[in-house]
Computed example of a mutant assay.
Amino acid sequence: MSTHTLTSGHPLSPLRDALWDAVLEGDEHTATGLALDALHGGADAESLLLDVIAPVQGRIGVEWAANRITVAQEHAATAVNDRVVGALSRSRAAHRDRTAGASGRVTVACVDGEWHALPARILAEVLTLRGLRVDFLGAQVPTAHLITHLHRTGADAVALSASLATRLPAAHAAITACQATGTPVLAGGAAFGADGRYARLLGADAWAPDARAAAALLAAGVTPRTPRVHQPIDDLPHLGDQEYTLVVRSKAQLVKAVLVGLDERFPAVRDYSEAQRERTAEDVAHIVDFLAVALYTDAPELFTGFLDWTGDILAARQVPALSLVPALEVLGEELRDFPRATRHLRLAAGRPGARPLPNIPTGKDA
Rank of each mutant, 00 (worst) to 15 (best):
V126I: 06
R98A: 07
A93H: 14
A102K: 07
R121G: 05
A124D: 01
R96L: 13
A120W: 00
S103M: 08
R98K: 05
S91E: 14
V134Y: 04
R90M: 15
V108F: 00
L129I: 03
W115G: 01
T107K: 10
R98Y: 02
R92G: 14
R133F: 06
T128W: 07
V126R: 05
H95I: 06
E114Q: 05
R121C: 00
R96Q: 13
A100V: 13
V134D: 03
V126F: 02
R133S: 12
R90Y: 13
R90S: 15
A100I: 12
V106F: 08
A120Y: 02
H116R: 11
V111A: 15
R90P: 10
H116N: 09
A93R: 14
V108Y: 05
W115E: 09
R133L: 03
R96A: 14
S91G: 09
R133T: 04
S91P: 15
V108M: 06
E114F: 00
L127N: 01
R98L: 05
R90H: 12
R105K: 08
E125S: 07
A117E: 10
E125D: 14
V126C: 00
T128E: 13
A100K: 14
R121F: 01
R130H: 12
I122V: 11
A120L: 02
T107L: 11
G104S: 14
D112F: 10
R92S: 15
G131I: 08
G131W: 04
V134H: 04
A102E: 14
W115C: 02
A117M: 05
R105V: 08
A117D: 06
L123Y: 02
A94K: 09
R121A: 08
V134Q: 01
A102W: 00
T128V: 07
R98D: 01
R90F: 11
A94N: 09
I122G: 00
D97S: 12
G113V: 11
I122R: 05
V111F: 13
V111S: 13
G101A: 12
